[in-house]
Design a protein around this nucleic acid. Structure first.
Lengths: 208, 208
DNA sequence: TTGTCAATTGTCAGACGCTGTCATTAGCCT
DNA sequence: AGGCTAATGACAGCGTCTGACAATTGACAA
């Protein structure tokens, strides 16, 4: 049961987040000032910074949920699966259920639009990549424990996760600059690209 | 022949760069203000911003040279080599000759120290990753042209370069947090990690 | 209900990165 | 020497973000 105070806090946070995402996706991230966001919710600028460490944190609030969703999916994979297969299945299944994880906070369409803003705004892209590296570190430790190897001495967990993450990023980039912006489309693209990793990449590309 | 004016400009730029790197590597990037850098060279803050678009640009000035060095190395690989082999040979040879490319601007030791600052400063790490993505895009187009495939329809160039870049980043990270900070050390590590990409990563890690 | 405590908020001041403007200085060229 | 142009300094201003303090508001007990 939430107290009145907590409900009020949640409401202002939600209002700030929605106002921020609305402004970011409609007029651009850099073009939106914190004052604008605060004014839209009729709170002081200082209050915005009490709910979000900065503009950036508001921009990634939904991404945080999606990341947690994906990492949880990896954790719930059967331990008998080899690591790469676990990652692959987790991300494919994760795209299928990301709807439910997000919809209660923000419409999925807003999530996808914000994703494109992140990809096309240099500052946000940089932050996104750094966040990805952090997520990869967490995943590497997860896989290392899962497989019973030491993440500090065995480079394979970090290598595998980094390579996997690289494919995922290329996928996201291709998706966000292509036509079909549905969740189904990115799922299919992910499968296609993951299947390419292997002999297709290593050898010569010329005799096809 | 450089005019007096141009020599003077080059000297203030060099002085600003050296002061910046000195301060960044000794007291940290975030802890260093632009005013400090400008004061150390006895110019106005405004002048600093006439030579560098921002603090960040000063931090990456040497990295820019190293990047160009590596891309040039890839371009000079024999066209008969398969793409991954070209990347591999270029980066290994690049580490052998990076000395000469940099030494005229900054002592190599400073380059290596600054590299560690970049890896350990969130803001700079983010910028570094974004820069890497840009470099990877350039490399992908290079390889696509080299192999005669279309970079817009064939995902292999971007995929290969992204995977390769991921390995390089893991290498740099492991190197910068390990003991031996020599150029030889990172060269060896690069070779070791690149050799791991393949069957070693894909299958199960358990029965070793 | 009322008073007390703690949490939330607004206001103000200020640091820092960065930009535009304009007057001043300094190299260049005839 | 004197005019032209490029480099610089000084100043004002915007936007992000933080610290400090006072005012407000909900929570909870007497």
């Amino acid at each position: 049961m939430e107290s009145l105070r907590e409900r009020k806090k949640r409401r202002t946070r939600d209002a700030l987040l929605h106002a921020a995402l609305d402004l970011f996706t409609s007029q651009g991230y850099e073009q939106t000032t914190v004052d604008e966001i605060a004014d839209a919710v009729e709170v002081s600028q200082r209050t915005f910074f009490r709910y979000f460490a900065g503009k950036e944190e508001a921009a990634f609030a939904v991404q945080v949920i999606a990341e947690a969703h994906f990492i949880r999916a990896v954790r719930e994979r059967p331990p008998c699966e080899p690591p790469l297969e676990a990652l692959r299945q987790a991300v494919l299944e994760g795209w299928g259920t990301v709807n439910e994880a997000i919809a209660s906070v923000v419409p999925v369409e807003m999530y996808l639009r914000m994703f494109r803003v992140i990809e096309s705004t240099p500052t946000l892209l940089a932050a996104h990549l750094r966040r990805s590296v952090e997520a990869e570190e967490a995943l590497a430790r997860l896989l290392a424990e899962r497989e019973g190897v030491d993440v500090e001495t065995d480079p394979r967990p970090r290598l595998l996760v980094a390579v996997f993450g690289a494919v995922i990023r290329v996928t996201g980039r291709a998706w966000s600059s292509d036509g079909d912006l549905s969740v189904a489309a990115i799922r299919d693209l992910t499968r296609t690209y993951l299947d390419l990793v292997g002999p297709e990449l290593i050898g010569s590309w010329r005799r096809d």
